[in-house]
Simulated assay, not measured.
Amino acid sequence: MQLKKTIKIIAGVVVFFTLPTLLFIGYIYFKYNEDVPVGIQDEAADALADKMLDVLNFEAYKKTEYIEWTYQNKRRYEWDKANNLCTVRWKEYKVDLHLGFPERSKAYVHSFNIIGKQRDQLVNTAINYFNNDSFWLVAPYKVYDDGVKRSLVKRDGKDALLVTYTQGGTTPGDSYLWSFDASGKPVKFKMWTDLLPMDGLEASWSDWTTTTTGAQLPTFHKVLFFGFEINHIKTTR
């Protein structure tokens, strides 16, 4: 009898905690999940992308040779943009990434140089971190990267820009639907990416800062109920 009572109590606790969670996940899924919209690839899409780049001072970004930042106060980046190099730091690790030739990268644990399989694992981790965390910093400036498709989508009576990356990055094939304010500045996008459990999740792009080189970069994003910051941004030419 005592065993049955214990099992019932455990089962009740499990149901109490898991049922609301499952209901919440279901609500989120049916509220936000949607297929990638179909857009039109034409001059109007490029014009919308050009307007966004003008508002964000793309020319200043192109002339920016160095960007430093921290992502959620967990990872620190020192990106030598001019030479395609980046030092990535997290926990006790440091990786000097050679973005063009990853095999030339160096990895360290507590300042000790690491070689072999562990070095390769750390380099791959740093590359994935860089691809993700730099995207949250400079994604608007990447709409004309090689292999990018731009399409115009009508959303709530307004023009939105669907950007699809057919190559590069950690998960090629990802799509993002940008929405803008009246000036053409991005305020949010919806995401279709293999890294997320559902399609069409929305993320804000806000709290923009104008850097010392003139480029504009975001310092805050919100996805569902969760926000994360990008701090300690420094730029030089």
Score class of each variant (00 low, 15 high):
18 T>E: 08
132 N>A: 13
156 D>V: 00
6 T>G: 11
216 Q>R: 13
118 Q>N: 15
235 T>E: 08
10 I>H: 02
232 H>Q: 14
132 N>Q: 14
187 V>S: 05
72 Q>C: 05
102 P>F: 01
112 F>D: 15
199 D>M: 13
30 F>W: 12
59 E>V: 07
211 T>Q: 10
137 L>V: 14
230 I>H: 04
237 R>K: 13
103 E>D: 12
19 L>I: 14
79 W>H: 12
33 N>Q: 05
30 F>M: 08
28 I>A: 10
16 F>T: 10
19 L>V: 15
29 Y>K: 13
40 I>E: 14
230 I>E: 02
71 Y>N: 07
132 N>S: 15
79 W>G: 06
221 H>R: 11
216 Q>L: 08
39 G>V: 01
164 T>H: 05
116 G>L: 04
166 T>R: 09
201 L>A: 11
10 I>L: 15
147 G>W: 03
177 L>C: 05
83 N>Y: 01
98 H>L: 01
46 D>R: 11
104 R>C: 02
76 R>K: 15
177 L>H: 06
60 A>R: 10
73 N>Q: 15
221 H>W: 05
136 W>D: 06
67 I>L: 14
123 V>S: 04
140 P>E: 07
53 L>Y: 07
71 Y>R: 08
173 G>C: 04
16 F>E: 02
150 R>V: 01
180 F>Y: 06
76 R>Q: 14
103 E>V: 03
223 V>Q: 09
19 L>K: 03
118 Q>M: 14
54 D>H: 09
180 F>K: 03
53 L>Q: 10
229 E>Y: 08
201 L>N: 09
6 T>Q: 10
23 L>N: 06
13 V>A: 09
21 T>P: 00
102 P>I: 04
177 L>N: 04
53 L>E: 08
114 I>V: 12
80 D>S: 03
172 P>E: 09
132 N>I: 10
117 K>I: 10
205 W>Q: 08
198 M>S: 08
87 T>S: 13
178 W>M: 06
21 T>A: 14
84 N>F: 08
188 K>Y: 04
86 C>W: 00
194 D>T: 12
229 E>W: 03
165 Y>H: 09
47 A>Q: 13
140 P>G: 06
34 E>K: 15
109 V>H: 12
36 V>E: 12
214 G>H: 06
47 A>F: 01
1 M>Y: 03
125 T>P: 00
226 F>H: 13
205 W>M: 14
50 D>A: 10
95 V>A: 07
139 A>C: 13
136 W>E: 05
216 Q>D: 06
147 G>E: 07
93 Y>M: 04
41 Q>M: 13
4 K>N: 14
